[in-house]
């Protein structure tokens, strides 16, 4: 292993670090003590013509393969030499959707365990991106002046953070519910207004509320109706009344036996293949 390592190190110094087309590679390590390093693959963030993106074109740096111990703060620190940074966001996967994200509640969506991630770094000026693309590294995530917690340190601080403040939780719940109640009240008021009022073509919407409520439009309800119909029909039918019905039911019985026999034969075949009949 040692030999292999030396070889790789040598190759790096001669040819530069291999990187996929369009990306440049920056080695990154946890601290001085580590020998081998991971590689960040970075490029300027760009999307196809016409597509919108949550991040400004030209000023955003897209980073792949961010190691699990690397936090947003440490990325900020490591990249600020390239130019003033506006924001750093770490994500599990590259972002493909266009919708802006809502801020998530920390009580109802606890932070998941971190693995390897991708990052979007927005610089204040486009020059920051080009400077970052030529970084040589290796970058150090944890230094003496800016230590990053890992292992026992991290778990203890995570545990401390996980103990919630009941008051803050209560406040959040109350605000949410107030907004929700208001929304519901508005919807109801709107529905009441519209009830029984024909639209421009003269159709009246039947709701569950009015004086003559309609059936709920659910799958279960429609299945129930079908089932009732079927039972009604089954009650009317006569079984084994005509000779041909008799004959057919006998034939059906025989067919069942045949089917069973075939199944059993297949089963036996399988057991024989597995030598299941050697008693000892």
């Amino acid at each position: 292993m040692v030999a292999r390592k030396r070889k790789r190190a040598g190759r790096n110094s001669e040819e530069g670090i291999p990187s996929p087309p369009g990306y440049s590679a920056i080695p990154i390590k946890f601290s001085e003590k580590q020998q081998a390093s991971h590689y960040l693959y970075v490029r300027a963030h760009s999307v196809r013509e016409g597509a919108k993106s949550n991040w400004p074109q030209k000023r955003t740096l897209f980073i792949l393969n961010v190691p699990p111990y690397c936090t947003e703060e440490s990325l900020l620190r490591l990249l600020s030499p390239c130019g003033p940074v506006q924001s750093v966001e770490l994500q599990e996967k590259p972002d493909l959707t266009e919708n802006p994200k809502e801020p998530k509640s920390k009580y109802f969506h606890p932070k998941p365990v971190q693995g390897f991630q991708v990052a979007y770094v927005v610089f204040q000026k486009p020059s920051g991106v080009s400077a970052a693309l030529t970084l040589k590294g290796p970058l150090l995530v944890s230094t003496e002046s800016h230590p990053v917690k890992s292992g026992i340190h991290k778990w203890i601080s995570d545990y401390t953070d996980s103990i919630p403040d009941p008051e803050a939780l209560r406040v959040e719940v109350d605000t949410f519910m107030e907004a929700y109640d208001q929304k519901i009240a508005e919807e109801e008021a709107k529905a009441k207004e519209e009830e029984g009022v024909p639209d421009e073509e003269g159709w009246v919407k039947v709701t569950r509320r009015g004086r003559r409520p309609g059936l709920p439009r659910t799958e279960a309800a429609s299945l129930r109706v079908l089932e009732r119909e079927r039972q009604k029909r089954a009650r009317k039918e006569l079984l084994n009344f005509y000779a041909w019905q008799h004959r057919e039911s006998k034939m059906e019985h025989l067919a069942q036996l045949r089917k069973k026999f075939e199944e059993d034969k297949q089963r036996i075949e399988l057991m024989r293949a597995q030598r299941k009949f050697r008693p000892y």
């Binding site: 601290s31 580590q34 081998a36 590689y39 026992i152």
Partner: peptide, 23 residues
């Protein structure tokens, strides 16, 4: 050809980094 392989040496060191104090 450019291909991707797991960075095993770094990963082995990550085991120790992630479990600092425990490993």
């Amino acid at each position: 050809e450019l291909v991707m392989v797991p960075n095993v040496e770094a990963i082995l060191e990550d085991f120790a980094v992630l479990g600092e104090g425990l490993v």
